[in-house]
């Protein structure tokens, strides 16, 4: 185990944890307000496609990001309309939105660009470039701090920093503001909130609006930061890993960050372990590492290591008394 390997693993962990973190925080707002969201994957996919498309056409990465977020918000609102206003089944709404995103992105991608569902390759201003933090170069030679600051923290895409910044912001909003209190309250006991004269419907729509923004950032990360263009189903189930991370951290912002780092690390490990022989154990099946986030979540859900109990009113549409 040499130092370069550790550094590159740490770096990869941060890069791979970012979309999970953004998506898991997106889900946190929604689920904490009482709307189960199994449609994260769909929103991310829709956003990834919209971002890549607009960035390719305009050549401007910021316009791409904006488009991705807008499309993600619209998708979320459709899901919200079904689950909040029409009081439909939230699980089915999530499944429908995801399928719609899978179908629409491949269909429109093929129709518009005719490259087998891919969008044109992005370069230059159409794609985010890594940011070098101030003094990164100067500090690079300082022992320990240099490695930590210049090699691990510096040199990421802006969305990586946004994601990690969103953690303390979310924690503050959720636990220290009136909005956060109300948001948690509609997820636990909407009737009490209603009795206090606050609109459950409005509160829930506000919550999923934030969900839409964050899921949009997460999706855009795939196509205009990490990747250079959109490919079919490029989010590859990461929306569900994020959901798993959210549950694994029991719907709390700071643990969400650590869980996403853990799952990101597993992902980095899995990439590195392809065809690698380890001493004693031999070749560890990559698939086991891939499945580990899901297995861990199931074990936690089953209550064998602690207990994950979701928001009490989650999944239940709120019906005012007649």
């Amino acid at each position: 185990m040499d130092i370069d390997l550790i550094l590159s693993m740490a770096n990869a962990t941060m890069r791979l944890a970012t979309p999970l973190l953004l998506a898991a925080l997106a889900g946190l707002y929604s689920e904490r307000s009482g709307i189960f969201d199994i449609g994260l994957e769909g929103k991310m996919l829709a956003s990834a496609f919209a971002a890549a498309t607009v960035a390719a056409v305009t050549g401007n990465v910021w316009l791409g990001l904006f488009a991705g977020v807008i499309v993600s918000i619209l998708t979320t609102m459709l899901q919200g309309f079904a689950s909040i206003t029409l009081k439909g089944n939230q699980m089915i709404a999530g499944v429908a939105v995801t399928m719609l995103a899978i179908g629409m992105t491949t269909f429109l991608g093929q129709t518009w660009f005719r490259q087998g569902g891919r969008t044109p390759q992005l370069s230059g201003d159409a794609r985010f470039a890594p940011i070098e933090l101030p003094f990164a170069r100067e500090l690079a030679d300082v022992p320990v701090i240099g490695a930590l600051y210049s090699d691990i923290l510096s040199g990421h895409y802006i969305l990586v920093y946004v994601a990690f910044l969103a953690v303390p912001v979310t924690a503050y909003v959720l636990y220290r503001t009136r909005f956060g209190l109300r948001l948690r309250a509609v997820g636990e006991n909407p009737k009490a909130v209603d009795t206090a004269g606050i609109s459950v419907t409005l509160q829930r729509y506000q919550a999923i609006f934030i969900t839409g923004i964050l899921a949009g950032l997460s999706g855009a990360y795939f196509s205009i930061a990490q990747g250079a263009g959109f490919g079919n189903e490029m989010t590859a189930g990461k929306g569900y890993v994020a959901l798993a991370a959210l549950i694994f951290s029991k719907w709390r912002p700071v643990p969400v960050m650590f869980t996403c780092l853990l799952f990101g690390f597993l992902d980095a490990l899995q990439i590195r372990m392809q065809n690698v022989e380890l001493p004693l154990v031999g070749q560890v099946p990559v698939q086991l590492v891939q499945a580990l986030p899901y297995i861990l979540t199931v074990v936690l859900l089953a209550g064998f290591i602690g207990k994950a109990v979701g928001p009490k009113a989650g999944g239940v549409p709120y019906v005012k008394e007649r």
Partner: peptide
């Protein structure tokens, strides 16, 4: 393309399931 069928399928789930 045949992905159109997936779109139809998703819309059917949306209308008959979630937006009943």
């Amino acid at each position: 393309t045949r992905e159109m069928i997936e779109v139809i399928q998703a819309l059917i789930i949306l209308f008959t399931g979630a937006m009943e």
